[in-house]
């Protein structure tokens, strides 16, 4: 038995899950191989350590508090979950007080009450906060919404598009599609690298939802995007299409990123990946049927 084969069974061996015959084979190897033996010891240590952790349950009082906050948050249309954190709320108290004071002064001058909202933290403490649109760019507000924080409707962003078509692409028509896809232009004009950093997870979810609505397999699409992002994590997905390529089924995924070289951080580069979904689960690398990129 060689080291490579032993390593495949080593975790089960360390956890005591190997059948007797195989366990004996591994034991025999470990007696002669110090490297594998040391690895088995480490796996046994981490297994014992993880096994010593007790199950975690939410304390009952916490449960009641969280449920009350969730439902209260929904009723009041609360946004920006991070700001419900009691520690953040506590630390932000001084800033809030200053802002409230400022708002009162402004209110006295203008007589207006816009921008005030009363929120209930999960600790059950009513907190008056001032939403100050002037302090945040429209894009920042949109980003919050894209992350599910509900400040502006998602529709106000240029969002990724998914569709199912009866297109049966070949090399030439795929290149043509890659060069003429309008949404890559919109993303290039609209988004920068920092948008990709902040919004990529929300956009992946959005694209997967759209893809499911179009009749595609959302989780499979997300798996493909995750595969692409293993080598380049910060890419913003803009388009997915369920189609055919040389009569075989493909999911085409288009992601945008900044140019490989150059000063701009705009997402002017688009990568086009076409995977065969029937082969992807078994071997992502072999499922790739076409790849290309365009530069705006």
């Amino acid at each position: 038995m060689d080291c490579r084969r032993v390593k495949k069974s080593l975790m089960e061996y360390a956890d005591g899950g190997l059948p007797a015959g195989r366990r004996d084979e591994v034991s025999l190897h470990l007696e002669a191989c110090t490297e594998c033996s040391a690895m088995a010891d480490r796996l046994a240590l981490s297994g014992a350590a993880l096994g010593s952790l007790a199950p975690v349950e939410m304390p009952p009082d916490t449960s009641a508090r969280v449920f009350a906050a969730v439902t209260a948050g929904e009723e009041t249309g609360r946004a920006a979950g991070f700001f419900r954190s009691p520690r953040v709320v506590a630390a932000a108290g001084l800033v809030t007080a200053v802002l409230v004071g400022l708002a009162i002064v402004v209110g006295l001058v203008t007589g207006g009450r816009d921008g005030e909202e009363t929120t209930v933290t999960k600790r059950g403490v009513a907190t008056q906060a001032v939403s100050a649109p002037a302090g945040e760019s429209a894009l920042q507000l949109e980003q919050k919404d894209a992350l599910g924080e509900g400040v502006l409707p998602f529709a106000s962003l240029v969002t990724p598009v998914a569709r199912a078509t009866s297109n049966n692409y070949d090399e030439a028509s795929m290149k043509n599609m890659a060069e003429s896809l309008e949404i890559t232009e919109s993303f290039a004009n609209r988004y920068t690298l920092s948008d990709a950093i902040n919004m990529r997870y929300a956009f992946i979810e959005k694209l997967a939802d759209e893809f499911v609505a179009a009749g595609g397999d959302g989780p499979m699409l997300e798996a493909m995007i995750s595969y692409v992002q293993q080598t380049e994590p910060v890419l913003l997905p803009c388009y997915a299409e369920k189609a055919l390529f040389s009569s075989q089924p493909v999911y085409i995924v288009v992601l945008t990123g900044p140019p490989r070289s150059g000063a701009t951080s705009q997402l002017t580069r688009a990568e086009f990946w076409a995977f065969n979904p029937e082969k992807f689960t078994a071997n992502p690398e072999l499922s790739l049927v076409w790849w290309g990129q365009s530069q705006k």
Partner: peptide, 28 residues
């Protein structure tokens, strides 16, 4: 709730963060 809280706690190592996260997850 326990499924979410447990995973959030293991990912953050902090009960207050786990509570915050559980709240955010259920709001979502």
């Amino acid at each position: 709730r326990n499924q979410v809280y447990s995973l959030a706690y293991r990912m953050t190592g902090n009960p207050t963060d786990a509570e915050d996260l559980t709240q955010e997850v259920f709001m979502q």
